[in-house]
Design a protein around this nucleic acid. Structure first.
Length: 423
RNA sequence: GUGGGCGUAGCUCAACGGCAGAGCACCUGACUGUGGCUCAGGUGGUUGUGGGUUCGAGUCCCAUCGCCCACCCCA
């Protein structure tokens, strides 16, 4: 019986892992610069956490969660989203401490599981690099979160990222807007697509997202959330724009940006890149001022962001961005003949003990094959041990870049090769 | 979840219903103790899987799995 990986998952092979490490390392470095600390939460949570925070009527909760029951009869769900677990931990572990206005800044790199139909750039297990800034209502923090994302993209060499922003209001103004939206569409709803007729009842904000020509025409004349914001939300949105502009961050206002998670309030934003196909969102997030309280914590605001690592890698590939060059390093021990084998094997052990990357050919093939392998594997030196060398107590060290060779006494080798790496 | 396209060597791809091939990669040798360049030779396949039609199926039909594209949704 042959087995396949589950649909929509991928193996990250040795050849690709360096690209992942590069992206992860870059993200950690940016987070460090911005003062965010890492948090790692379990890969599964109580199902209720996602249901109540993300929202029962969202696609994520209603049809995409990997939910199972454990032997104790508890309903658990594989991490469907990054924010809720971080907020849960924030509340449960009281990360804020006594200072109720302290800003807590967290980041994570974690797998996310959604049982959606796979296509290019969409997987059932994908990975998000995310941040959460919990504790401040200031729009300057929203702008910082956006700035961090753009800094990250830039550090990866990704040009051409578009930033779309919107405000989805708050519990004060959003319900009024929903009523307004319903009212403006009411007369035309029977001419709209089937999805929209359903959305009209269940989640009218999603009407704004519809791409059907007839639906769009109806929505063109509909009021926008931005026109219906309450004073506080309007002020916050203006503050966001002001701070983005202070940083020279270009943005487009797109009143159709809604985000598929119910906890968002005020700011909603998304990063897109034209190098991708239909799945062109490479990151997104927004403010969630009611979520912490809803998760059993104090009534404090928060804002966060999630970036899809797979999508970022796809953009880098589409833009033809080269992989990081791996510098040559280490020593490959080339043994010739039986008398060199055990001394070579011992040398291998000693070099590793001295911190030098080293390998040997267990197949004991020809010197030619060993040299070819050493070259292909990116070794900086070939340490050649044959009858001559053994008799004289030395090794021939060949620099694989220059081709220059020198003879080094065996006992001095580890010291000699230590710290050797390509400039 | 709906609709369409595609699954052949490690990779990229050929093969009218009639002997499963090429390039790259890999291995060996030319170079008897030295990688890259060149040349010669070689290994490598249950044609995704299971059925069916046929004298004969990589090719046609059905099913199934996976990937890709679009919708939807999202990262």
């Amino acid at each position: 019986m042959r087995y396949q990986r589950p649909k929509g998952t991928q193996d990250i092979l040795p050849e690709e892992a360096p690209r992942w490490r590069f992206v992860e390392r870059t993200f950690r470095d940016i987070c460090r610069r911005f003062g965010y600390s890492e948090i790692r939460t379990p890969i599964f949570e109580e199902t209720e956490l996602f249901v109540r925070s993300v929202g029962e009527d969202t696609d994520i909760v209603s049809k995409e969660m990997y939910t199972f029951e454990d032997k104790g009869g508890r309903s658990l769900t594989l991490r469907a989203e990054g924010t809720a677990p971080a907020v849960r931990a924030f509340v449960e572990e009281n990360l804020q401490g006594q200072d109720r206005e302290r800003l807590v800044k967290l980041y994570y790199i974690a797998p996310i599981f959604r049982q959606d139909k796979p296509q290019a750039g969409r997987y059932r297990q994908h990975h998000q690099a995310g941040i959460e800034a919990i504790g401040s209502p200031e729009p300057a923090v929203d702008a910082e979160v956006i700035d961090l994302a753009l800094s990250f993209y830039r550090a990866l060499g990704i040009e051409g990222t578009r930033l779309l922003i919107n405000s989805v209001g708050c519990p004060v103004c959003a319900p009024g807007y929903v009523d307004e939206l319903r009212a403006s569409v009411a007369d035309s709803v029977e001419h709209m697509c089937r999805d929209c007729r359903r959305r009209y009842d269940t989640n009218p904000l999603r009407l704004l997202d519809c791409k059907e020509e007839t639906c769009r025409r109806v929505l063109d004349n509909a009021p926008t959330m931005l026109d219906s914001l309450c004073g506080e939300c309007a002020e916050h949105f203006a503050g966001l724009r002001e701070h983005l502009e202070a940083l020279d961050i270009a943005y487009e206002i797109d009143t159709r940006i809604v985000r598929g998670l119910d906890y968002y309030t005020k700011t909603a934003f998304e990063f897109r890149h034209d190098a991708l196909g239909a799945q062109d969102s490479i990151g997104g997030g927004g403010r969630y001022d009611g979520l912490v309280e809803q998760c059993g914590g104090p009534a404090i605001p928060g804002v966060g962001l999630g970036i899809g690592i797979e999508r970022v890698l796809l953009v880098r590939e589409a833009l033809g961005l080269a992989d990081e060059e791996q510098p040559r390093e280490g020593s490959f021990i080339v043994t010739i003949g039986d008398e060199a084998w055990l001394p070579g094997y011992r040398l291998l052990h000693d070099l590793r003990g001295a911190g030098v990357k080293a390998e040997i050919d267990y197949r004991r093939r020809s010197i030619r094959a060993q040299m070819r392998y050493a070259d292909a594997q990116g070794y900086l030196n070939a340490v050649i041990l044959g009858g001559d060398e053994i008799a004289r107590g030395i090794a021939t060290v060949r620099d694989m870049l220059s081709g220059e060779q020198e003879e080094v006494p065996l006992e001095a080798l580890a010291e000699h090769l230590k710290g050797d790496a390509q400039e």
